[in-house]
Design a binder for these strands. Structure first.
Lengths: 352, 352
DNA sequence: CCGGAGCGGCGAAGCGCTTCGACGACTGCG
DNA sequence: CGCAGTCGTCGAAGCGCTTCGCCGCTCCGG
């Protein structure tokens, strides 16, 4: 426990590369090369070293490795912690990121933006991470100029207004909006409402909300569909009220596109009480996680946000940037519409 | 860019402590002591050094620091990634952990359990983290013996069957169950059902589910209340069915305790269609996040899981362990019942 | 007037690892 | 038979930081 006079002051439990080398009867550098594979090592030596490693329970010291190799084998995942976040999606995403990063032999440092840009500076400056994944990027995000300056590569989830010099991944929300409307138009709907995120989300300049709205509008235009757009606050009471008002003002609506996870359940619950059965009197398409769509009654036709896929892609892109490979500035994942039980052809309801 | 002959091969952007020392005209060690405060430094020197640091934009290299000081200033947050997790709670918790850790000048490494125990070994062995927070601990958790062996301290969220030698934090679910039943008993209810988590969660030996059940049973006993216990699967269809069955078998139930985030909404939605208005015909108490309880219609009397508080406590405890302070093995947070609109005295319904 | 105790600062020895250049021992070829 | 070219291994020089021991001051009491 005290460490005899010979052993200086090393803690007893820490096995170092020196111990491994001694145990295997080779030089320290040989052990290192066995581990990294950066030089040829004879099969016999390699197995002997690996055996020693296992026997001693050796784990390379991350700090020393980072210091010597100038690579931390860690990436940062920068989460926002604002209200109105899509919690399950974020979680799914985070898990995909960790899992994928591990596959590339990297770990993930969890960072929140509440320290502001200085937090990013600190992380990057201290060389704790080799690169960073930044979530929930807004159209005009204050972190973007900083990221452009930083020496470490980064990948953004979400697309800012000007993606020049950046790397961004996201669902193609514009197309997602289109796909929803096209589906409804094909069914014969002509009057559609988009129930969007809370107004604050639009005001904040959140890309996905704006892009979806644009996509919906574009497709509507093209297919002769009229669209009413309406932000939607949270809370079942507010939702009920807003929905009632909406139907009051536009009694001839026959379909809804809902882009607001939290609203999906309440909307479905309210519609029958407002005299609209789903899907007979009102079709509903949602942009929300599959899990939500599957569990609702009726099951909802939806375009899921492929959080897992986005996470994988983001990590993969970051890894390529770490290897100095060129990557596209914007990667948009194609939306996939899953048709379930909440959409149908409209039934003649009010005479024109 | 090429690094002149004098500057050897250091990357141009990395400011080191040597640069700061030179700029401030002091020794490297002096800069270090200014930063750590471990030795007295004159005010004049300290300000000069701090000025240089700011001017040069110096950030200590985390790897070097960890190597030399043998402390990484990082803690691991070990998440499960099983199905049936309480996603919003986990998220809340994670954010609280990161925020609190930062307050102690630590960062957070996000780890998932899918690598199994070897993942924990790797993290601990590589000295990337000084300690770990392990979430979602089960009664008989395979990670527990490992944690006991590890040299690095850890704090568990959840309490295993035998917490000896560990440090655990959790909501006092036993008392939470009691509190719910006591509230109902006080209102005059005599026939209560506990709608629990999916059966798999019980089978898995998840502590909070078992403890709640025990607490409910104990309080029921004491107050002369009869309790029906029933695991509840997910998905609105299943829930509706199970609820209908339950009411069929026990038509005289006048109150429900729901410990199943995902079931709260559907249950509330189903009850009226089964001829039970809330709270007139059926009182409902839930153990779920406040957010859910507030947004439901009617707003639900509930005991929230204080994720944020648990996160803060867990980090605080871990920090104390890092400083070799003694901490209690089990810290149980007292449940707080918030009375809202979903509970009332029972109305005579079926004649005895 | 001198000895001892702080104070404030310096220099150097690592922390555990990667990586570069060097160097024997083979190989194959002229 | 000799020389160049691998191949496999070694030794040593850092990476940027903390920390220990030391030293020259100044200040104080005896």
């Amino acid at each position: 426990m005290t460490g005899g006079p010979g052993r200086s002051r090393k803690s007893p439990d820490q096995v170092t590369i020196v111990d491994v080398a001694r145990h295997a009867g080779v030089a320290v550098s040989t052990v290192s090369y066995v581990l990294s594979g950066k030089r040829a090592i004879s099969e016999v030596t390699r197995t002997r070293v690996l055996a020693s490693i296992r026997e001693l329970g050796y784990h390379p010291n991350a700090g020393a490795r980072a210091l010597a190799s100038r690579r931390a084998n860690t990436i940062a995942l920068v989460l926002p912690l604002r209200a109105g976040m899509q919690v399950p999606v974020v979680m799914q995403f985070a898990i995909a990121v960790v899992t994928t990063a591990r596959r590339f032999d990297h770990d993930v440092l969890l960072v929140t933006s509440d320290e502001g840009p200085s937090g990013l500076r600190r992380i990057a400056g201290s060389a704790m991470v080799d690169g960073m994944l930044v979530m929930d990027v807004e159209l005009d995000d204050s972190r973007v100029p900083l990221l452009r300056d930083l020496t470490r590569p980064s990948v953004l989830i979400g697309v800012p207004a000007d993606p020049t010099g950046l790397t961004c991944v996201d669902l193609d929300f514009h197309r997602a909006g289109q796909v929803c409307v096209e589906h409804l138009a094909r069914l014969g709907h002509h009057r559609v409402a988009l129930l969007g995120a809370p107004a604050a989300v639009y005001d904040r300049g959140t890309g996905f909300a704006h892009r979806t709205r644009a996509g919906v509008a574009a497709a509507a235009d093209r297919h002769g569909v009229t669209v009413v757009t309406q932000p939607f606050e949270e809370g079942p009471a507010a939702i009920r009220q807003e929905l009632a008002d909406l139907l009051d003002r536009h009694p001839d609506l026959s379909a809804l596109v809902v882009q607001n996870e939290a609203a999906v359940g309440p909307v479905l619950a309210c519609l029958p009480t407002l005299g609209r059965r789903v899907p007979q009197d009102m079709s509903v398409v949602a942009i929300c996680p599959d899990q939500f769509a599957e569990q609702a009654a009726p099951r909802i036709t939806s375009v899921p946000v492929p959080a897992e896929e986005i996470g994988r892609q983001a990590v993969a892109l970051l890894m390529r940037k770490l290897h100095d490979e060129a990557v596209p500035e914007v990667t948009l994942l194609p939306p996939r519409l899953t048709i379930r039980d909440s959409t149908a052809a409209p039934t003649a309801r009010t005479p024109r």
